[in-house]
Every structure is written in structure tokens, then in C-alpha cells.
């Protein structure tokens, strides 16, 4: 089709101007890009600095820690980690924590899935009130339930077991799971269910074979939140246990010895509590990055 190469001086000038314009246009977004990166980096430094300090201290001997401030471990040592990983009073704390967290995640998701399905697909007597009541449990301060829980679990003989903590955390984790899952399920068109039933699927088979795979990213996100709130909770977990099922977080509070706080061990133990979280985020990162919108629209 018709086009001409710039032969007239006018056209040459025009092209030069356009090229100039192009350079200017490109320059501006680039500087904005760098400002964005700068701000993001500043925030990440803010997030990492306290963690770095914890890490730094965990590799120092207690004499170095108390001897004066050093920005990195000058006498690098893994003695605290060695201690934690070899003394059963320490490492059992991790085992206990992970045990009740996993139990809680399993219980919560198993009972929340059908319940969320019911809320997202059916109307029934009292559905709205029931949903609201569920959400109020999210708002119950654990401190309120400390004493009754202690008495309840003591009476039924579950005190100082993993199950006790797992069940106690159901108080806020099941409502949370129902809430998140209900949102995801409502995003799946009902026609999917109807088609499956017409195709002769029974309800349980449909639910497991078709429905659950369709909301897999919702389940991923839910499990992430379940892990998060069960792993970080301390008040109930430490109240309902004494020795056999004691979580790592409460083992840590006992680092105060006769010679003051064992800072190195505290830092090393703290560092180790961060690791499972990182693993969990790593697994769900794509579900989160894919984008989800919690709640009813």
C-alpha cells in the first residue's frame, strides 16, 4: 500500500521530532518503575530487618550476644540449633505444634466443605441466622473461652492432648473455612451440578470427582488460612496443654533460666517457627497470585 520514505526536509524533521518524542515518553514510565521498586524494596527491608536480627542472633553464642552489638555473627555458631534439634523437650514442641495444626486443618476442611456447599446452594430454615452465628464465633476472643475450655477438656479427659488443641481451634477455623469456601463455591455455576446429576452422578461422587477439583484453588487458599490461624495461636494452645502436647511457642516462653533469658536458643527456636509458614506460602502462591475475591458479592 501507499507509503513514502522521508525525502523532503519537512518529513525528515517530522520523523526526528517523533523519535525525540518517543525517547521522552519512554523515559517517564521508567523512572516511575524505579520509584515503585524503591518503595517496594523499602517495605521489604522493613519486613526483613527484625527477622534478620533474629537470624543474626540465632547464629551467635550468648556471650557474643550480650557482649555488645554486632551486625552479623562474628563467631558463627549453630550450637543453639543443635541444642533444639537434639533435646526432645525442644523438638517435641515442633512435633506437637505441627500435629495439632494438621489435625485441625483436616477436621476443619472435612466438615466445612459440605457445610459451605449447603450454604452456597440451598435455602433452608434458619440458614441466614446460622451463617451469622457462625461468623460471630470468629469474633470470640480466645481469652473469653480460656477457663471454660480448660474445665471442659479436663472433664472429658482430653487435657494435654493434640486433639484438644485441634478441636479448640475449630472454634474460629471452621467458621473461617465455611466463609471462604462459600464464596468460592458461589462462583461455580449451578448448571455444573445439574448437568452432573443428569449424567447420573450420585451426590458424593459428584462432590469428590467434579466439584472439589473445580474449587481446588479455593481449597488451597482456605488451607492456607487454616494453617495460618492455627499455627500462630498461642493462648488456647498453651492453656490446654502442659507437657505431652505442648506447642513450640509455649516451650519458648520457658527459656528464662537462672542466668536470665537464653537469647540464642530463643532466637534459633523463633527462626525455626518461621520455616513451616514459608513452605505453606510457597505452595499456595499461585492460587493467591491468580486472584481471588473473598466474601459474597
Amino acid at each position: 500500500m501507499s507509503h513514502s520514505s522521508p525525502t523532503t526536509p519537512d518529513a525528515v524533521r517530522q520523523r526526528a521530532a517523533a523519535a525525540d518524542n518517543r525517547r521522552r515518553r519512554r523515559a517517564r514510565p521508567a523512572s516511575r518503575q524505579w520509584r515503585r521498586r524503591g518503595l517496594m524494596a523499602a517495605y521489604i527491608v522493613f519486613v526483613l530487618l527484625p527477622i534478620y536480627w533474629l537470624l543474626n542472633m540465632s547464629f551467635q553464642s550468648n556471650t557474643e550476644i550480650l557482649g555488645g552489638l554486632t551486625l552479623w555473627p562474628e563467631n558463627f555458631t549453630v550450637e543453639h540449633y543443635a541444642k533444639i534439634l537434639t533435646e526432645s523437650s525442644w523438638y517435641m514442641g515442633y512435633v506437637n505444634s505441627i500435629a495439632y495444626v494438621l489435625m485441625n486443618m483436616l477436621i476443619s476442611i472435612v466438615v466445612a466443605l459440605p457445610a459451605a456447599y449447603a450454604f452456597s446452594r440451598y435455602q433452608f430454615i434458619g440458614d441466614k441466622h446460622l451463617f451469622f452465628w457462625l461468623l460471630t464465633n470468629l469474633m470470640a476472643p480466645p481469652a473469653v473461652f480460656l477457663l471454660p475450655y480448660f474445665q471442659l477438656y479436663y472433664t472429658v479427659g482430653l487435657f494435654d492432648t493434640h486433639v484438644a488443641v485441634a478441636l479448640a481451634h475449630c472454634l474460629f477455623n471452621i467458621p473461617l473455612a465455611v466463609w471462604i469456601l462459600e464464596g468460592f463455591m458461589s462462583g461455580v455455576p449451578k448448571e455444573i451440578d445439574e448437568t452432573a446429576f443428569i449424567d447420573g452422578y450420585s451426590f458424593p461422587r459428584f462432590f469428590v470427582k467434579i466439584f472439589i477439583p473445580m474449587i481446588s484453588s479455593g481449597i488451597g487458599v482456605t488451607l492456607f488460612f487454616l494453617f495460618m490461624f492455627s499455627w500462630v495461636e498461642l493462648l488456647l494452645a498453651s492453656t490446654l496443654t502442659s507437657t505431652d502436647a505442648q506447642p513450640i511457642a509455649s516451650v519458648m516462653t520457658q527459656t528464662k533460666g537462672a542466668s536470665g533469658i537464653d537469647w540464642g536458643a530463643l532466637a534459633a527456636a523463633g527462626t525455626l517457627t518461621i520455616l513451616p509458614g514459608i513452605v505453606v506460602v510457597y505452595f499456595v502462591r499461585n492460587h493467591i497470585a491468580k486472584g481471588f475475591a473473598l466474601g459474597r458479592t
Binding site: L49, P50, L54, L234, L266, A267, G270, I274, I278, V281
Partner: peptide, 23 residues
């Protein structure tokens, strides 16, 4: 960035206290 930003959320609450106490 997602993993780094999320990290503080997954630290047990009293450890958060300890981290800041040390810091």
C-alpha cells in the same frame, strides 16, 4: 515478594513478640 510479604503473618504470635523484643 509474595512470600516475603506474607512471612510475618505465619509467625506464632508470641514469637512475633520475641522478635520485636530482641529487635
Amino acid at each position: 515478594v509474595l512470600i516475603l510479604v506474607t512471612m510475618p503473618l505465619l509467625i506464632p504470635w508470641n514469637v512475633v513478640g520475641s522478635i520485636w523484643q530482641i529487635f
